[in-house]
Design a protein around this nucleic acid. Structure first.
Lengths: 342, 342
DNA sequence: ATAAATTGATAAAACGTTTAACTTATCGGA
DNA sequence: TCCGATAAGTTAAACGTTTTATCAATTTAT
């Protein structure tokens, strides 16, 4: 743990000169000979400048706090991971790092509060929203973040009326899969959602219902089922759904994992896909590509969304003001699990 | 950005008292009335203590630097993500956070150097090793980490002779799948590895060869193929392999994704699994479970490994000394893709 | 009644950098 | 010759906490 002072002494200089040079190799305020002595001292003492001291002094951490209000283990969810991949790639391109302060509190609001508190001093924040948040919780979380007076951007969150910077993943709120199946002649469409009460699930539920009713098709609440973000639970619930509702010709699944589980169910029930049952997934993940038959899905461009969020945030940190919305729309990836009915 | 000084002024106290109370709610050095005034001031000014100032002063960050020398986007790899899940769960249980300072350097050694440099001041480090590291690079990385004088633990790294704290995932170095297939009568076993030159791939290659030769089966280097950690590349290479080597009755794959790709290839070539081709994967990921037929795989207990690493590190931070090795052994998950030959 | 312990506080130094302001020496140009 | 630039440095305050040492007042024990 050598400090800049030791480097300075070893090089026969003041700490100021060392700092000046280390932060700008081409500075003219340190002579060539002195520069060499500094380099030698740094090498000899294995000096690394202390992030915390440097941040405190310069009031800039080059660190972004990542706020994820999930009750499930972090890095275990494909959506969130892809989002993170996008965020990370943009951040590191501009020299920023990420700070995770996970919490083991029991409600998403407490989690967010703790994370914000503990990462105070970051240059900005990215707030994820997960299926574990209700609309009210999302709003509370945003409020909490606003109190920090630091720039932040929300990702994966339902559209808000307040002027905040946010990246919206359109097809996370809009039930495009249902419309797609409808256009292909399906009238009895089951819906497989994530978690009861979650923002996204609620939006999708409402949208699914509205789309059906607009088309004059009665909506049956019994044909909606929740997988709770687990493959096992999805399998169980989908099996139950298909057994109790043999009239269903198609399943719109909130994620590819649910869709892959549906495929398994179909197989076990002896239903051929897509001949007897059409399935559409979401996220264009590896699961959809590697399944057999390969699963028709909607690419949410989630990595792109992560990148946009990071970009927006860095602009805000650089000084741009005002709220801004970026909307990312999905595109259908047509594969082998959807059949057109006549 | 209210500071502790403002809280102190508002509560009519000294900063010292505020700090004392905030760090120990049950302290007797601040009176009950004063405590209430502090609470009120904190609420009113939205005070959060500054992580950086606090760390600088107390010389403890409660932050672990995560060093991942990967050339691929972070959070895009199932192994690493699961490892991270394990690390994270232990860390957050004990109140620690994680710091990621990704780098976009072009060699794994540069990446590690940059990450260490930028996260200087953390309480400890976890060094991942990835398929992108050669043995020499791994050693260099460890040397670099030792210079920091901070505790660290290596994860997922080949066994080292030096006395460092490390968690070894045994079946990442030992080609247990080959032995498993051998025991079930297979004599012509193809091997699907990750990246040419990577530590793990090299170890597995050597082990695979040795196991075969010990059993008196000639080893054909042509039956080893590299998927480069991509499903597409895996598909292409496996297809080529199976077409050129019709004598193969089994495939030992380094990951479940490769195994799932192999399943696809088999399907496209009209080979039935496991009747004509046995496949074994590794990692017991969702891909293996959701595939059809479900893939026989070896559970590496990777999340467990992550937890152990975090545990070991926290113990070291708490003062325990000396190197220590924890070895995590895999267990076979027998499913539907392996057939026993007579 | 007095010593000892406890309660409730504060002052000030320290943590390791950064940076604005200042100094001195040297050099070219008019 | 003298002025202004420029090069090569230094000093010292500041960033926001923590923590050790110190102190006064009050309570408890003897």
């Amino acid at each position: 743990m050598s400090s800049i002072r030791e480097i300075a002494t070893l090089a026969g200089l003041s700490p100021a000169s060392v700092s000046l040079y280390l932060n700008d190799k081409s500075t003219t305020r340190v002579g060539p000979a002195a520069k060499e002595r500094i380099d030698a001292a740094v090498k000899k003492l294995h000096y690394h400048k202390n992030l915390f001291a440097s941040t405190l002094s310069s009031q800039e951490s080059k660190l972004i706090g990542i706020i994820i209000p999930s009750l499930m283990p972090l890095f275990g969810n494909e959506y969130t991971n892809t989002l993170l991949t996008g965020v990370q790639s943009q951040l590191s391109e501009r020299g920023y790092g990420m700070l995770f302060f996970p919490s083991n509190a029991h409600t998403s609001v407490e989690i967010v509060e703790e994370q914000i508190q503990r990462s105070s001093g970051c240059d900005g924040y990215v707030l994820f929203s997960t299926g574990f948040c209700t609309q009210a919780q999302v709003e509370k979380n945003i409020l909490e973040l606003q109190k920090t007076d630091k720039p932040f951007v929300t990702l994966n969150i339902p559209e808000m009326s307040t002027a905040i910077r946010q990246v919206l993943i359109r097809d996370l709120e809009v039930c495009s899969g249902t419309r797609y199946l409808l256009e292909r002649g399906h009238k009895h469409i089951g819906l497989v959602l994530g978690r009861t009460g979650g923002v996204h699930a609620k939006k999708l539920y409402a949208d699914h219902r509205d789309i059906l009713e607009e088309s004059g098709i009665p909506f049956d609440p019994q044909t909606v089922v929740y997988g709770e973000y687990s493959a096992e639970q999805s399998y169980t619930m989908i099996k139950k759904l298909l057994q109790e509702h043999p009239e269903l010709t198609a399943l719109n699944c909130m994620s590819d994992i649910m869709a892959a589980s549906a495929l398994l169910v179909a197989q076990d029930l002896g239903l051929s896909v897509p001949e007897e049952l059409s399935i559409i997934g979401r996220n264009n993940s590896l699961h959809a590509r590697l399944a057999s038959p390969s699963i028709t899905t909607v690419d949410l461009h989630i990595e792109e969304a992560g990148k946009s969020a990071a970009h927006l945030l860095l602009e805000a940190i650089a000084g741009s003001t005002g709220g801004q919305k970026i909307i990312i729309s999905g595109t259908f990836i047509e594969r082998e699990t959807v059949r057109t009915l006549q």
